[in-house]
Amino acid sequence: MTTAAHATAAHATTGHAAAAPTCDRETSVTRSLLGYGVIAGPVYIGVSLAQALTRDGFDLTRHAWSLLANGDLGWIQIANFVLAGAMTVAFAAGLRRAHGGGWAPRLLAVYGLSLLAAGAFRADPAGGFPRGVPAGEVSWHGIAHLASGGIGFSCLVAACFVLARRFARRGQTAWAWSSRATGALFAAGFLAVASGAGAAWATLAFVGAVVLGWAWIGALALHTYRNA
């Protein structure tokens, strides 16, 4: 083979190697972490609804999902809180890697930690659930559960508005408005259940807010994954 032929072959080989996709470990890890944000919501909502529809005495219009942590099968909802919290923290880590830091990943990480705390500190029985268990005095773990929820929900709302501002700066109008709407509606649902004194409309409004919040997290995770 002539020198010119060798050069041509070498150029072709180099060009082929440059065109071939490379395995970027950093991107792979980031996408793996973001993937947890896609599945966290469906897992949490699915497990919660399955229990809500099958647990004796549970009423979706009267009882918050947190109450499912009580009773003989309470360990299922406790595990659900812990799993959803761990996946949310992992997603927040992936978001931090993809966005290069900022407040949004930190706020979402705190939301994930609040879910872990919600699993560690069980909500007190209320509203006749579990069946036959009367509501008593508020316990220390019940107070801790409420506090962790308040902190976590506040951080989720704040993350919505922080990211809305970032999307607006980038000219991503649809994402900016949807993030603002999610934050506002979630805050309204949380305030409704906090002040509704167990009214059916307030409980259902909060359930809708929780589903909306998880849908936003899943959509954000998928959007970031595709652009990572």
Results as ranks from 00 to 15, higher is better:
1 M>R: 06
3 T>L: 15
3 T>S: 13
4 A>Q: 15
6 H>T: 08
7 A>F: 05
8 T>G: 15
8 T>R: 14
12 A>Q: 10
13 T>K: 14
15 G>E: 09
16 H>M: 12
25 R>S: 15
27 T>W: 10
28 S>N: 11
31 R>G: 03
32 S>Y: 11
32 S>P: 01
33 L>R: 08
33 L>K: 03
35 G>W: 11
37 G>A: 09
41 G>H: 10
42 P>K: 09
45 I>L: 11
45 I>R: 03
46 G>N: 07
46 G>W: 00
46 G>T: 03
47 V>S: 06
47 V>P: 02
48 S>D: 02
51 Q>G: 11
52 A>N: 03
58 F>A: 00
59 D>R: 15
61 T>L: 11
65 W>I: 02
66 S>E: 12
69 A>V: 07
70 N>H: 12
73 L>D: 13
75 W>G: 02
79 A>L: 10
80 N>S: 13
84 A>M: 13
84 A>S: 15
85 G>Q: 00
86 A>S: 15
89 V>K: 03
91 F>Q: 05
94 G>T: 07
94 G>W: 14
94 G>Y: 13
96 R>H: 15
97 R>H: 11
97 R>V: 06
99 H>S: 13
100 G>K: 00
102 G>N: 01
109 A>V: 07
110 V>H: 04
112 G>P: 07
112 G>E: 01
115 L>G: 00
115 L>I: 01
119 G>A: 10
122 R>D: 00
123 A>M: 12
126 A>D: 14
128 G>H: 12
140 W>H: 10
140 W>M: 10
141 H>K: 04
143 I>S: 07
143 I>C: 06
144 A>G: 04
145 H>T: 07
146 L>D: 15
150 G>Q: 11
150 G>D: 10
150 G>L: 12
161 F>L: 15
164 A>V: 02
165 R>S: 10
167 F>I: 04
170 R>P: 05
173 T>D: 14
174 A>N: 11
180 R>F: 00
184 A>T: 08
185 L>M: 09
185 L>Y: 01
189 G>A: 05
193 V>Y: 07
195 S>V: 08
196 G>N: 00
198 G>A: 09
198 G>S: 08
199 A>D: 11
201 W>H: 03
203 T>N: 12
205 A>G: 12
208 G>K: 06
210 V>C: 10
210 V>S: 09
213 G>T: 05
214 W>E: 01
214 W>S: 00
214 W>F: 15
216 W>H: 05
216 W>G: 01
219 A>G: 03
221 A>R: 07
222 L>D: 06
223 H>K: 05
225 Y>K: 05
226 R>V: 08
227 N>A: 11
227 N>R: 15
228 A>H: 10
